[in-house]
Nucleic acid binder design. Structure first.
Length: 508
RNA sequence: GGCUCCGUAGCUCAAUUGGCAGAGCAGUUGACUCUUAAUCAAUUGGUUGGAGGUUCGAGUCCUCCCGGAGUCACCA
């Protein structure tokens, strides 16, 4: 849709024209900066006691005008850069009548970027400021940002007046959200901290970071519908990956002992407070450990990330105290369901009897659902919401876990765990299946189950079986939702608030 | 996709039973050389998300559409 300037924008366009008529470039090429706002304030405070010496700190600071208080012959302007703010004191005597006029007539105004040269000082009201001798416009803001005023209280806390809170506008125009909401900027700094903490931890544990295809001819490794695209020259349909699993595990055949990848997965499913069509996943595979070893890595990794990002492995999420310090609680899926629902699914070894038992307890069980999926439903509705403190749920039904090794001596369970924090599933792991005959049988079995549910089956990946036939070391594998961990560490209630650009329907 | 709720000025919000669309901030004009949500005076700004309908009269009621939120379903 073409842009129609609002009244306020027309005012600003007019000012832009007036500036250019005065020969003042509104978007100059050259910029100079000697100090960030924070560095300028720090430099002054460090030697303030020295009296005259302090008066001699010359600075050139740059930033966006965020507050203006313009009086007859003196103006106070706060400029903000990526690190903080500093006040400019601009006196007509210091900058000349003409230049002061630019400020007084608001040709340079709220939201514009400016460069100011001056010396550091403290105003009579006590605020460290730049006494400005030269003020330049660096970039004109044609559209005004939402108006928000801050009052700094005696104790240093900031009270805000005005908000930019409409979630739709905030997500669609994240740049404006970030520009006026420093706490939102902070969330995404912590997100970066979370990712780099994960990377540091795995690097230190001897993992090799790799990158595998996002465009895949055959998708797999999870149960989800894919996005489909097409390569024109090859005239070939390709799928955006739904997981990294199968490509990463092939690398253990290739004799890397431990690999991981951090990247984007794409699932063509519904969106919710914890689902986005594209989301960030970390997966690792490590030879010569089983899922017990993976649990050990999991709890150490998550506690480490929490310490790095929040300063402690004890966090607060949505008002609930959560202790991520290892070791975490471990309980089998069977015991968890039995304790919470009174149903021992081993007593009802088929879909019909389990479904009947569930309905008897008033739990929904749709006819035609497989036994494994009914158990998964029990997990999701009865168990998951209660798992506030970090918990490993172990040993899943075989028929919903096609890549996990069987529990020795137990034909119906596999060595798989999921871990939950704050009532949310954070990740999934197995003692990885490495017997190519068993793997092939599982693929075929999955195909049948999907056929039975009239669902789209993931195509059988022959090359993956070929790789496994060369011999795959025993290994543990693991995946975790990075967005969800970020939610936890930044205390955000919805995944959209940890995604810079959450998925939105196109606007006409 | 189902159900419920929401959409009013650049931002945040009002508007009684269906009865003249309003406020604060910002903007504009003026005053002010140490302000701190600066203050004081005056003032501009609206296709009430869109299209229909009911009515003497619709921001308000009805239908459809667009967008968002919540929830269920689907799904890790």
């Amino acid at each position: 849709m073409p842009w129609e300037p609002t009244n306020v924008e027309n005012d600003r366009l007019e000012k832009l024209a007036r500036l250019e008529a005065l020969g003042i470039p509104a978007f100059p090429n050259r910029v100079e900066r000697t100090h960030t706002t924070r560095a300028a304030v720090a430099a002054y405070e460090a030697i303030e006691a020295d009296g005259e010496a302090a008066e001699s700190i010359e600075v050139i600071v740059c930033g966006r005008v965020r507050r203006q208080n313009i009086k007859g012959k003196v103006a106070f302007i706060h400029v903000e850069d990526g690190e903080g703010r500093v006040q400019l004191m601009i006196r007509q005597n210091d900058v000349g009548e003409e230049n002061y006029g630019l400020v007084k007539e608001k040709l340079i105004e709220l939201d514009d970027f400016v460069q100011a040269r001056g010396v550091m000082m403290r105003t009579q009201a006590g605020e460290v400021s730049v006494q400005v001798f030269e003020l330049r416009l660096l970039a004109k803001a044609v559209s005004p940002l939402p108006v928000i005023k801050d009052r700094v209280e005696e104790d240093g806390t900031v009270t805000r007046f005005g908000t930019f809170s409409d979630v739709e506008s905030r997500y669609r125009q994240r740049y404006a959200d970030l520009a006026v909401n420093p706490d939102v900027r902070d969330v995404f700094r912590k997100r970066a901290g979370t990712v780099s903490a994960i990377r540091r931890f795995l690097d230190a544990e001897g993992f090799l970071e790799v990158e595998t295809p996002i465009l895949q001819p055959i998708y797999g490794g999870a149960a989800a519908r894919p996005f489909v695209t097409h390569h024109n020259q090859l005239d070939q349909d390709l799928f955006l990956r739904i997981s990294f699993e199968l490509y990463l595990k092939r690398l253990l055949v290739g004799m890397y002992d431990a690999v991981y990848e951090i990247g984007r997965d794409f699932r063509n499913e519904g969106v919710s407070f914890k689902h986005n069509p594209e989301f960030t996943q970390v997966e690792f595979y490590k030879a010569y450990i089983d899922y017990h070893g993976v649990m050990n890595l999991t709890e150490r990794l998550v506690a480490y990330a929490a310490e790095q990002v929040t300063g402690s492995s004890k966090i607060t999420y949505q008002g609930q105290a959560i202790d991520l310090t290892p070791p975490w609680k471990r309980i089998t899926l069977r015991d968890a369901i039995r304790e919470l629902s009174g149903i021992d699914y081993v007593d009802t070894p088929d879909a019909d009897s389990l479904g009947a038992a569930m309905r008897q307890k008033g739990i929904e069980a749709k006819p035609g659902t497989t036994w494994g999926k009914l158990i998964d439903h029990l997990l999701g509705t009865v168990v998951e919401p209660t798992l506030i403190q970090p918990t490993f749920i172990l040993d899943y039904p075989r028929d919903i876990s096609p890549f996990a090794k069987m529990v020795p001596g137990d034909p119906s369970h596999v060595e798989r765990f999921e871990f939950f924090i704050a009532g949310m599933e954070m990740g999934n792991a197995f003692t990885e299946l490495n017997d190519p005959r068993d793997q092939e049988a599982r693929f075929v079995e999955m195909g049948r189950l999907y056929d039975a549910e009239d669902d789209e089956a993931a195509p059988l990946d022959e090359d993956y079986l070929r790789a496994m036939r060369y011999g795959m070391p025993p290994c543990g594998g693991w995946g975790m939702g990075v967005d969800r961990l970020t939610m936890l560490l930044t205390d955000q209630r919805t995944i959209r608030d940890v995604l810079l650009y959450p998925h939105m329907r196109d606007r006409e």
